[in-house]
């Protein structure tokens, strides 16, 4: 079991309502999981809870059977790597410098294992195909290149779980495909558990083993794409009418939308 969440509730100090309201779910190892739901449904807050960025008020979170609250920041970083929605730096580090920083979670003061570090860094850069960018400062990179560097940095943490927060939402479709193919490859070859917050339902359908559909701080539906991405569910959660069709793959629905005027 990679993640187990039981009756998790969270409320920001200043807000009147709970952002997350007694959520319970499990994520098995080596799964590709998509978290979907309308804006403001609590997806990003859930992610913050899972990475200990905020203190949860009720409930429990377990990462590989260890209670999250009992882990240090470093221990969490050894288990979970995160790729944020968009990350910008004020300083133009090179790709290699950034990826190397991913090793921090495994370093102890005055003790260096340069060989392992170097191996892991090279492997991460190879997997994300950024070896040719190693010495390039990030100010001279495109959005797609930078996002691959950030993924490589997370991989250098050698995490068991990789969490992405709409990591491709500002990229064009070819870069989106490239990143999701890469994630699928990592998921299959390196047995990485992947949890991705997604807006594009078709991407979620095509890549995920499991989908967690959220609404107003609660889980509305959890299951395979076929089970969760039904026209009725989408109508209920997003309030839009869509057409759900199955083409050659009967397990992965295609969702199409229509203009509401006319």
């Amino acid at each position: 079991m990679a993640i187990k969440v039981s009756s998790l509730s969270f409320q920001y100090p200043a807000s009147p309502a709970k952002v997350l309201d007694s959520l319970s779910f499990k994520i098995e190892k080596n799964q590709f999981v998509g978290i979907i739901g309308p804006n403001g449904c609590g997806k990003t807050t859930l992610l913050k809870c899972l990475t200990n960025m905020v203190r949860i008020q009720e409930g429990n979170i377990f990462l590989f059977d260890k209670e999250l609250n009992s882990l240090t920041t470093k221990q969490v970083a050894q288990l979970v790597g995160v790729v944020p929605q968009r990350w910008e730096s004020s300083f133009s580090f090179t790709a290699k410098e950034l990826v190397a920083m991913g090793r921090y979670a495994h370093k102890q003061r005055f003790i260096r294992d340069k060989e392992t570090d170097e191996q892991v860094i090279n492997k991460a850069m190879k997997a994300t195909r950024i070896e040719h960018l190693a010495e390039r400062p990030i100010f001279q990179m495109s959005g797609g290149e930078l996002q691959r560097v950030v993924i490589a940095q997370a991989l250098a943490q050698t995490p068991q779980i990789l969490i992405l927060d709409e990591a491709t939402s500002h990229l064009d479709i070819s870069h989106q495909l490239e990143i999701f193919d890469l994630l699928k490859e990592l998921n299959e070859q390196q047995e990485l558990t992947i949890i991705s917050i997604m807006h594009d339902l078709n991407f979620a359908s095509q890549y995920c083993d499991q989908i967690i559909m959220m609404r107003e701080g609660k889980i509305f539906s959890q299951g395979s794409p076929k089970e969760t991405l039904t026209a009725a569910n989408i109508k209920e959660v997003y309030g839009v009418d869509v057409n759900v069709v199955f083409t050659n793959d009967s397990e992965r629905p295609l969702i199409s939308v229509f203009p509401r005027i006319n």
């Binding site: 920041t73 970083a77 979970v80 995160v82 944020p84 990350w87 580090f93 921090y104 979670a105």
Partner: peptide, 17 residues
């Protein structure tokens, strides 16, 4: 070095920010 990437990033990479 890690803090110069932003607090959130630093924490996610293991720094006790």
């Amino acid at each position: 070095n890690l803090l110069s990437l932003g607090e959130e990033k630093a924490q996610l990479m293991g720094v006790d920010v």
